[in-house]
Design a protein around this nucleic acid. Sequence first.
DNA 1: ATTTAATCTGGACGATTGTCCAATAAAAGT
DNA 2: ACTTTTATTGGACAATCGTCCAGATTAAAT
Lengths: 204, 204
Amino acid sequence: MNSEVSGKLQVRAERKNRKRQEKKDQIAGSALKALQELGYANTSLRDIAEKSSLSLGMLHYYFEDRTELILHCVSVYKTAFTSLLNETVNHAHGREAVINALAGALATTIVEEASTHRLWYDLRSQALFDSAFRPVVEEIEETLIDILKLAATRADKADEIDASLGYALIDGVFRYQLQNQITGTPRDQKALAMEMRAVLELFL
Amino acid sequence: MNSEVSGKLQVRAERKNRKRQEKKDQIAGSALKALQELGYANTSLRDIAEKSSLSLGMLHYYFEDRTELILHCVSVYKTAFTSLLNETVNHAHGREAVINALAGALATTIVEEASTHRLWYDLRSQALFDSAFRPVVEEIEETLIDILKLAATRADKADEIDASLGYALIDGVFRYQLQNQITGTPRDQKALAMEMRAVLELFL
DNA sequence: ATTTAATCTGGACGATTGTCCAATAAAAGT
DNA sequence: ACTTTTATTGGACAATCGTCCAGATTAAAT
């Protein structure tokens, strides 16, 4: 009986935590929109509260401080982006298909979610100064490197590849494309995909 | 005689401007040190003033506002870095030498001037949000692309290269190396140079 | 030597920041 | 129905921010 009671309490506590966690995710999702627009340096908690129709106190109720909130935002970004890439790679068979699918997905996300990615680059730069951001940045990059390894496997690549180096190269091009998309002359998805395909063929 | 007088005045005004310009450069050089440590988002004018032993009013006397000061800092960075690379490339003859010299110089500057470069990446990310930073970022990247073209020429590269794409790839690796140097396990100059050499051989 | 201009100081200013809390409303548990 | 816990509000708070300026100091010009 004692175990039944403690079991009830446990279930209750878990449900409470899950609810709270979902609310945190939802808030982070809203906050993401404000951060995407203004960037890390110029987004205050009031900006986030306004653009999310939340009170300032709410943010503090769910998040210890500004840093924790922003870190949670990065996690939300990570989940969405890496699972997109993972599915893309997992649904392609053979070298040609993997390269095309990956290049296509990267090009599409540049066109459609440009301002989400620019926030990623902003926060990744922050991590160079603030160690609080480093674990989450490292985790995301490790996941991306793993995806690249997976891509190599599914592309029937025989010998091992230097996935870290590959990530660095691809990221360089991805970022440059993103920058041109935002600050320069935007190109259509097809052109971006073609360029990315050429880069991917160096590795896969 | 009238022209003599106006000539004198002109000389005087020019000397004044030159002096002021030199002072601005000197201040920007000091400010660079503060910015390198704390990053764009977390460096206040007071931080800069303290670390440079300057009064707050001085900064305002020479620079309209915070943005102008920081932009001037980027210019100082640009001059130093691009002229280093330019000389490096210009003193090398033939493909092997150009690749070795460039890879070596990039690796050395990562080891020795890591925190200067991380500020560059910080401000370049800022440019994705704040258009005030875009012209100077664009100018620097154009210069770097030109240096890559020059390197191709001096490496006796027959056919034209896509220097923009090459820049993106090299930058990706350079940034990744820098990040590992700062937030991960630092490597020695030789290891960095070797990796960079492999990347450069893809293009030159 | 005197006037004019440039340089520099130290601090004031209003605005904005992150953080926190007392009070209220809503939900959950009994 | 009542109590307890959770959620939410709106604003207070001290700290910090960029900007600006009156006045002192120094250099330049006459």
